[in-house]
């Protein structure tokens, strides 16, 4: 239990040496490794934080770009819809105009077709009317009717324009030519005399006439003298009526 100064002194030296040993070979290397690892961890954490910050920035950038894309897409879609509506309106207008033109053309064609049909019907009606009138008049025609027409012919001679008579005179019809007078029924002597008298009075000189019977005239007369042609018979009247249109 005694105190030994040599042991005390050696223990002091030993412990100081031990402090140096542990400081040199244990504490410093291990602390350096710990510190290096701590720095590496801190560096990794900083790098991770930087990467997180970069990723967040990229995420924000992506979100902003996505939003811009959405906005651009919406604007493009609106523009496209507007253009589509404009094009649709233009095409519809063009279609309506074309349709209207087609309709007008169809109306014109229909009107033309209707007019043609109406004209055909009128023509057919006239032909039917003419044939009906011809048959009717053929049945009622006779010397009496012809006498009546002869009277009308004589009465109407005064209504023939003067220039027509002058044209007959200018072409040598003044006594040199012969008149042709066709009738559906043979004329009596009195009728022929009345007729020659009326013609002579109208021309101012006697006229020689050839009296020809033509049953195709149905009833009445046809007078030819040079360029002058006068009708007073049912056939020519009906033909004139038929061809009037």
């Amino acid at each position: 239990m005694g105190f030994n100064p040599w042991t005390f002194l050696l223990e002091v030296i030993n412990f100081l040496i031990l402090v140096w040993i542990l400081g040199r070979f244990l504490y410093r290397p291990v602390a350096a490794v710990i510190e290096e690892r701590r720095r590496a961890i801190a560096s990794s954490l900083n790098e991770a934080a930087a990467q997180v910050a970069r990723s967040e920035a990229l995420e924000r950038q992506y979100a902003e770009r996505l939003s811009a894309w959405e906005q651009e897409k919406r604007l493009a879609r609106e523009q496209w819809l507007a253009d589509l509506n404009v094009e649709k309106t233009r095409l519809m207008d063009a279609f309506r105009q074309g349709l209207e033109a087609e309709r007008q053309q169809a109306d014109i064609l229909a009107q033309r077709r209707l007019s043609a049909q109406q004209s055909d019907l009128e023509q057919q009606s006239l032909e039917l009317g003419g044939r009906f009138a011809a048959r009717l008049l053929e049945r009622v025609a006779g010397p009496e009717l012809e006498a009546r027409l002869l009277d009308l012919f004589i009465d109407d001679l005064s209504q023939v324009p003067e220039e027509r008579w002058e044209a007959v005179t200018a072409q040598g019809g003044d006594g040199g030519g012969r008149a042709r007078l066709m009738s559906a029924f043979p004329l009596g002597e009195q009728q022929r005399a009345d007729l020659q008298q009326a013609l002579s009075a109208q021309l101012g000189h006697p006229v020689a006439c050839d009296f020809i019977t033509d049953p195709g005239l149905i009833a009445g007369l046809r007078f030819e003298l040079g360029p002058l042609l006068l009708h007073a018979n049912l056939h020519d009247e009906l033909e004139f009526f038929r061809l009037a249109e």
């Binding site: 031990l18 244990l26 290096e36």
Partner: peptide, 17 residues
């Protein structure tokens, strides 16, 4: 002391991250 010296030397030689 010898044990600590040897042990510390052995440990400090093989330190790794």
């Amino acid at each position: 002391m010898a044990a600590f010296w040897i042990g510390s030397w052995a440990v400090s030689r093989g330190l790794r991250q």
